[in-house]
């Protein structure tokens, strides 16, 4: 219950940040990926802003033995660079470039009245469910 409350607050902060940065709008994502057009460095700045906070944040939090409200930190145990990782990231990148959406802005987009996001979310779930059909089941991670 307490964890859900924290998750709700963190989700709200995340959604607000996506909107504040403008990255919630797919045309800004496409403008970043379109390096031969009028290149917009926006997405790189969003990542830079996030990493400036997250790199020291994760470093200091990981000095702790456990999180405040749970017994363990849930970090992926995988360390090897394998074919599913690279193939998955490649398919993800192609889909991202085609649609201009990744999962965060698709969900958060509902809060800005973006009706396209509904089609994108349904398609993302179809993609999730098709994964075992295309590739043998792989452990779920992040």
């Amino acid at each position: 219950m307490k964890q859900s409350f924290i998750a709700l607050l963190c989700g709200t902060l995340f959604g607000f940040g996506l909107a504040f940065s403008g990255m919630i709008h797919p045309e800004n994502v496409i403008a970043f990926l379109d390096i031969t057009g009028q290149w917009d460095p926006g997405l790189a700045l969003v990542m830079a802003g996030a990493l400036v906070v997250a790199i020291p944040g994760f470093y200091f939090i990981r000095q702790r033995h456990q999180p405040l409200m749970a017994s363990d930190f849930c970090l992926s145990a995988k360390t090897n660079i394998d074919a599913p990782l690279v193939a998955g990231a490649a398919l993800f990148g192609i889909g991202w470039g085609m649609s201009g959406y990744c999962p965060g802005p698709a969900i958060a987009g509902l809060g800005t009245g973006n009706l396209d996001a509904i089609f994108v979310i349904l398609s993302i779930y179809t993609g999730f469910m098709s994964q075992p059909l295309f590739f043998k089941k792989i452990n779920s991670g992040r």
Binding site: S76, K78, P84, L85, V86, A87, G88, A89, A90, L91, F92, G93, I94, G95, W96, G97, M98, S99, G100, Y101, C102, P103, A106, F119, V120, I121, L122, S123, I124, Y125, T126, G127, F128, S130, Q131, F134, F135, I138, N139, S140, G141, R142
Partner: peptide, 13 residues
């Protein structure tokens, strides 16, 4: 695109 985003993010964790 959304389909590939879903499929790719599961496959690539």
């Amino acid at each position: 695109g959304g389909f590939l985003v879903g499929l790719g993010s599961r496959l690539g964790n």
